[in-house]
């Protein structure tokens, strides 16, 4: 494979990852890292570094419109960022000492968890809880205009401390594995903290740019961000995610979701084998 072909292949894979990811509601990183390591033989640290940079691009692009349309809860996002950024710093520093086998095993786990969380039917109902004192004092409650409902949706935030704790864990996963971490945060914000799902994904995207920038800064300074690999990944994932967002209007096919889950399961098994062999 020549450098030119390698670039085209990475660009195509990243574009597909961004497209599929945005259609099913996850970031592209979860596919890019397995593809780079398993298919192209790139070192897992370099693959994670390239992925985390692309996460900044996609989440910042999405957050830009969520902020303008005022769906993202900026105040809550800023508060939770304190813990996600601390987590990302922990994770990215840990990545320097965790052995390569360990990274493969952890990545296999997060792939399996993502597949499971996409496959299960969302039967759980949001828990009613009184807004906590921290949310009251900092004024974290929100409201946004829901276009599909055609009215303003107001909500109150509870269990801010739980959100901070989960944010830290999501940050560690982001810094260690090069993913956004929305898959860990969004269910908790929705089910435990009492936020509408649209506000959850918008606020999560708003936070992920900052979380990913923390991890990316550490990888960049460590010299793990290779221009040859990171450039086609960043461009590809962003273009794919944009195309996906445009397609999203009409299609919400279960078939796409099923294909995505299958890719996750196969990647998870392959990463697991890399870890134990």
């Amino acid at each position: 494979m020549t450098p030119f072909v390698f670039t085209l292949v990475v660009l195509a894979i990243s574009c597909l990852a961004g497209l599929l990811g945005s259609l099913v509601g996850v970031g592209g990183g979860i596919i890019v890292v397995p593809a780079l390591t398993l298919l192209l033989g790139v070192g897992i640290q370099k693959a994670i570094a390239a992925s985390i940079v692309s996460v900044i691009a996609t989440s910042s692009g999405a957050a830009s419109s969520y902020v303008r349309e005022r769906i993202a809860n900026i105040r809550l996002g800023m508060v939770l960022e304190v813990s996600t950024v601390l987590g990302a710093l922990t994770g990215a520093l840990l990545a320097a000492v965790v052995p390569v086998r360990g990274l493969f095993l952890l990545f296999a786990c997060i792939l399996a968890y993502t597949a499971w969380s996409m496959f299960r039917r969302p039967t759980a109902r949001p828990v009613d809880a009184a807004p906590d004192r921290l949310a009251e004092r900092l004024g974290l409650h929100g409201a946004f205009y829901d276009r599909s409902l055609g009215r303003e949706v107001a909500y109150r935030v509870s269990r801010t401390r739980l959100g901070l704790a989960v944010g830290y864990v999501a940050g560690v996963a982001s810094g260690l594995l090069g993913i956004g971490g929305g898959i860990l945060k969004v269910p908790v914000m929705n089910l435990a903290m009492g936020m509408p799902i649209k506000a959850c994904t918008a606020t999560s995207n708003f936070m992920i740019g900052v979380t990913a920038a923390t991890g990316a800064a550490v990888y960049f300074m460590r010299g793990e961000v290779l221009p040859f690999v990171a450039a086609p990944v960043a461009v590809g994932v962003l273009l794919g995610a944009r195309a996906g967002a445009r397609l999203l209007g009409g299609m919400r096919s279960d078939a796409i979701k099923l294909i995505f889950v299958a890719v996750l399961v196969v990647s998870s098994i392959q990463m697991l084998l890399k870890g134990v062999r």
């Binding site: 830009s64 809550l76 004024g139 960043a234």
Partner: peptide, 29 residues
């Protein structure tokens, strides 16, 4: 101090939105 997101000034949100968009486009280029 105890005000919700809807009462926040729109200028700050617009500025944040523009910084994110411009940064991503310029770096992509």
């Amino acid at each position: 101090m105890n005000k919700g997101q809807t009462e926040a000034p729109h200028g700050a949100e617009l500025a944040i939105s523009r910084i994110l968009k411009a940064g991503v486009e310029a770096s992509l280029f």
